[in-house]
Simulated scan of single mutants.
Amino acid sequence: MSKKNKKESKPTKEFIFQKRNYLFLFIGLAFIALGFILMSGGGSDDPNVFNPDIYSFRRIRLAPTLVLIGLGIQVYAILLNPNKNKK
């Protein structure tokens, strides 16, 4: 066997994820980060004073929904097969 044949038979290294997977991963991370940012705040400096802002729509419904949507996008990005739609 010559050296040329040995080099040709080497398996090529490929990444598991492609550009499309990473795009969806970053979109999912943005949703999760936005959800956690919207959840923050609403506290009170004085522990003896109650602040009803902690029960606002933004913190109870919107922010956790964004986090769950972001996690769903992450799962989709991991399971996405970018080679399936190539022509």
Results as ranks from 00 to 15, higher is better:
K19Q: 12
N51V: 07
K6W: 00
T12L: 15
G42D: 07
N21G: 02
G28E: 03
R58G: 05
Y22M: 12
L23V: 15
P11E: 14
K13D: 12
S44L: 07
I27C: 02
K6Q: 10
F15T: 13
L38T: 05
K10F: 14
Y22A: 06
K7H: 04
K10I: 14
L62E: 06
K13Q: 10
L34M: 10
G35N: 05
R61P: 00
D53A: 13
G41P: 06
P52K: 05
T12A: 13
L62R: 00
I54C: 04
E8N: 10
I27E: 02
L25V: 14
G43P: 01
F57A: 12
L34W: 00
S40A: 14
Y55G: 12
F26L: 12
I27M: 09
V49W: 00
I60K: 07
Y55S: 13
R20H: 03
P52G: 06
R59P: 10
Y22S: 04
F15N: 10
L38H: 07
N51M: 04
K10L: 15
L34S: 15
K13M: 13
L38I: 06
F57Y: 09
S9A: 15
A33T: 07
P47H: 07
K19C: 09
L62D: 02
A30E: 01
F36E: 13
A33M: 11
A63E: 03
R59Q: 13
A63P: 02
R20A: 13
F17A: 12
K13P: 03
R20L: 14
M39V: 00
R61F: 11
Y22R: 11
L29Q: 02
A30G: 10
D53M: 07
P52N: 09
Q18D: 13
G43K: 09
G41F: 04
K7V: 09
S9M: 13
R20V: 14
I54K: 14
T12Y: 07
F31A: 09
D46N: 15
F24C: 11
D46A: 06
G41S: 10
F50V: 11
I32H: 03
I37M: 12
L34H: 00
N21C: 03
D53W: 00
S56F: 04
I54N: 09
L38D: 10
A33D: 04
L23N: 04
L34E: 05
G42R: 01
L25T: 13
P47M: 08
M39A: 10
P11H: 09
R20E: 12
A63R: 03
P47E: 08
P47D: 09
V49I: 15
